[in-house]
Design a protein around this nucleic acid. Sequence first.
RNA 1: GGGGGUAUCGGUUAAUGGCUAAACCACUGGUCUCCAAAACCAGUACUCCAGGUUCGAAUCCUGGUACCCCCG
Length: 266
Amino acid sequence: MGQLYRKLNAATAKPAKDISVAYHGVDILDPEESSDAGSFANFGDPLLAEIRARGKLPILAGGAGLYIRALLEGLDALPQRDDQFRERLKKRAEDEGREILYKELQAIDPVAAKGIPANNINRVTRALEVHHLTGKPISSFWERQRRPPKHPAVYIAIQWEPEVLRTRIRERAEAMFPALLKEVQSLVPEFYLGMEPGFRCLGYPEAVACVRGELQEDQALEAMIKTTNAYAKRQRTWFRRQVDAIWLTPGDDLAERAERAYREKL
RNA sequence: GGGGGUAUCGGUUAAUGGCUAAACCACUGGUCUCCAAAACCAGUACUCCAGGUUCGAAUCCUGGUACCCCCG
């Protein structure tokens, strides 16, 4: 996710430059460009086909479950995001409260309203947006018959002991933080406001707040650790419940076991 | 040794002597079809201890304990 963005290197865990694997999808957006699951899928779909055609095995590495699903399974034919419309809704939600938007959704699309929590402003917004753009309720696009995945794949996830994972996340954040601060200082406020889409990536909002003097360094670091832990938890839930992942334990020969799992499954 | 203050979920705090002790964060589980490194839902868990006053105590009183501050 963060790896998509140019200039944001310190906290995005990009692959080392001298690595012997061909990487794609790194440094393809500027921080002011927004990304979404649909455009990610559009980017990756031909790429996967092309790599396969060369007889190579593509590997998707990352934890944004929705992006991976969008790429491997495809999305329904929903329209792309409309940022202007979203801005308007956001403003209305701030001025009049989010309940207004949900009431609107209930009026336009009771089916969708039933499936979307009233407080989930993101999904309520999306549903209203689709209606705005197409004149049709988003639920009318939901008529999805189970289609075969566009790209056959095995999901492989690593199951860490909770305490070990916690420690690794802390150490990772601590290791990244000094460079992250320096990087953000060199970008904000001179070149960026720090509110652009790229700066939504883990650790960046905290570093921006620190550069602006809103947080002490140690507070920012702790906040970054916090959000990273929360993210890891969401990942765990996603790969546990949303997809049929194979869970491997660290300490084994991961590469070997992953390959075996892959052969068994396909 | 003397004086004062504080004590409520893991953390920070809320509750005129009166509903089932609350909120936020953390933690655990979960939701998910285009901002997802997002947004959201649910759950666990607390009145320092022992007495007393009272119909009724987190709240008032006594003693103890722990921590903080001041004086020696």
